[in-house]
Design a protein around this nucleic acid. Sequence first.
DNA 1: AAGACGGGGAG
DNA 2: CTCCCAGTCTT
Length: 347
Amino acid sequence: MTFQNELINWYLINKRDLPWRHTKDSYTIWLSEIILQQTRVEQGLPYFNTFLENFPSVSDFASATEAQVLNLWQGLGYYSRGRNMHATAQLVVNNYNGTFPTLHDDLIKLKGIGEYTAAAISSFSSGEARAVVDGNVFRVLARYFGINTAINTPEGKKQFFKLANELLFREDSALYNQAIMEFGAIQCKPKSPKCSICPLNIDCFAYRNNVVNQLPVKLAKAEKKNRYFNYFILTEGDKILVRERKKRDIWQHLYDFPCIETEMLLDGNDLDFVESVKNIFGNNAEITFVSYKKHLLTHQIINVQFFSLKNYIFNSSKHEELNWVSLNTLDELPKPNVIRNFIEENF
DNA sequence: AAGACGGGGAG
DNA sequence: CTCCCAGTCTT
């Protein structure tokens, strides 16, 4: 038997009885799909019922205030879903005369509806031949066909999407889409899948090769290193003290301010910190916290703190990388964004 | 291409 | 504690 028929047979026997499976109404299906994004059925189900009770139609939804919507959404997480739904409901009332779209190309334009949800709603409501690709589908395909391309890369997404659409059972896309997702959710589960009683295990690559728990492959996001830059703003008339970054590090040949890098986030009263500051800028130096910014780079998180310094003593001959420049000159110098923004906000 | 967004359940 | 869930949007 084909992969598709096996899945559908399994589904017809094992499917759960869920309320959104009894309708082809695109509004109701939309409700369920948004609620179920990154959300377990058991957690989303009560919310689905509440929303349908409060807003039986898309115009009821659109008439509500955003606060009412978010109140019902409370506790479900990812609150932008609720806000997007409200905006979409109003757009559907205004631009689609209150008839919720059923076609992929209309759906994909709506706020909160991405590739997965557009495929799901169009397939379930109008039978359009669009394959859903969600976390379940990634897992089932990766295991059954032995695909080890990482699912969280562009190549992986492309490959799985292509395969999913080739496999799509076009005679009944809704049935097939439901089947593969349900199969992933309760049979081919992430942890402890029920392989021994799986009707597809004979042809399952992962089962035959004993690599079920190694698929799908998901690339771990590289651990970003946290760094803590403490900058000092020293001014003298219209001059400001800047540093040219010469070391083998980020932002080479760009300019920033005098800086002490620390192992963790400090406050201006930390004794070791004050000590090292006074070491450079004299014992009378007064440190005042100005602002904090988190600056994100590809492989690093730079926690930037700015401090202004008064009553300092500074011997420029000891620090050749530091120079006084006028604010006008500073404007011309190449600087990292976080420095550029600070200057814009403070000078 | 990588992060942010969230709460809950399973192991 | 980590992983992951019927993903999408923003930077």
